[in-house]
């Protein structure tokens, strides 16, 4: 048998698209992290004399490299602050959803019976309701603070993790390494955290990378509808909403945040696909 596969040979080279995606996401993260140092809300003072200036290369100047918006605010400063808000909301929201969903899914799988039925019913309810309506109702009833907004966004998509975590936990419990750990005396906690979770992490990460852009878009939609990030705070979604009116005369107001969001979504998906392949130990050389 050729079981003597050497573990040397180094890692497979990373595809350039993934490198590019990582670079882009890294840049966004850096911008978000340093946003406070680069741009301050003071940079967002309106200046009606210089409203709707085009970006560099389209007749703009270095004073406003990405142009200005309808109130004469510097687009670059707005984009930097928006990236921070949007990334923060999407990231925290996605993590809330992932942790909540995975936990509920695993608990359902271990408990069975009534708890399992209840969780799965919640999953079905969540999956069958248009989430944006739920979010609208929640925000309309309870106000529009940033905290609540993040929680609402976080509830988006948890049912996917719950389904996956439950199914994979049930499958892993039935045979193989989980059963072996139980035979050796290990309890549900050890089996779930040390064995099942690392093994389903790849699938969960892929789900996360699918969910992350959707969460960003949800933030965008809610902000667009005026229920998300409230002025004077700004997010990519608010910018997109503002820019809609000027699409024909000052396209950059909508296009700049739009491109940033799309590229972020694309990059996360590319990265997720690649990560899934990397995280599968059976493909590791």
């Amino acid at each position: 048998m050729s079981a003597e596969t050497s573990s040397g040979d180094g890692r497979a080279s990373v595809p350039w698209l993934v490198v590019l995606a990582c670079a882009y996401l890294g840049l966004l993260a850096l911008v978000a992290a340093l946003a406070g140092a680069i741009a301050t809300p003071d940079d967002l003072t309106s200046d009606l004399r210089s409203r709707l200036l085009p970006p560099l290369g389209f007749g703009g100047t270095w004073a406003h490299p990405l142009g200005t918006d309808e109130l004469g605010r510097d687009m670059l400063a707005r984009v930097i602050l928006s990236v921070r808000t949007s990334l923060f909301v999407a990231l925290v929201g996605t993590i809330i959803g992932a942790v909540l969903g995975t936990t509920l899914g695993m608990v359902a799988a271990w408990s069975g019976g009534f708890v399992d039925d209840a969780v799965m019913m919640l999953v079905d309810v969540q999956a069958s309701l248009p989430f944006i309506i739920l979010a609208l109702a929640a925000i309309a009833l309870m106000g529009s603070g940033l905290g609540l907004f993040i929680v609402v966004v976080g509830l988006f998509g948890w049912e996917r993790y719950a389904r996956i975590a439950r199914g994979m936990t049930l499958a892993a419990r039935e045979d193989g390494y989980a059963a072996a750990t139980a035979h050796l005396g290990g309890g549900p906690w050890r089996i779930s955290v040390q064995h099942i979770l690392p093994n389903i992490l790849g699938t969960l990460v892929v789900t996360l990378t699918i969910n992350f852009p959707e969460t960003m878009l949800l933030e965008t939609s809610l902000s667009f509808l005026g229920l998300g990030i409230q002025p004077p705070n700004t997010s990519l979604g608010t910018m997109l909403g503002d820019g809609r009116t000027y699409l024909l005369t000052a396209w950059w107001i909508a296009v700049v945040p739009g491109v940033i969001i799309s590229l972020a979504a694309l990059s996360t998906s590319l990265l997720g696909d690649w990560l899934r392949d990397r995280l599968d130990p059976n493909l590791r050389r």
Binding site: G176, Y177, A179, A180, T181, H195, N199, P281
Partner: peptide
């Protein structure tokens, strides 16, 4: 082999 966690 099924009883051995592939990641460990």
């Amino acid at each position: 082999r099924a009883t051995l966690d592939p990641r460990w």
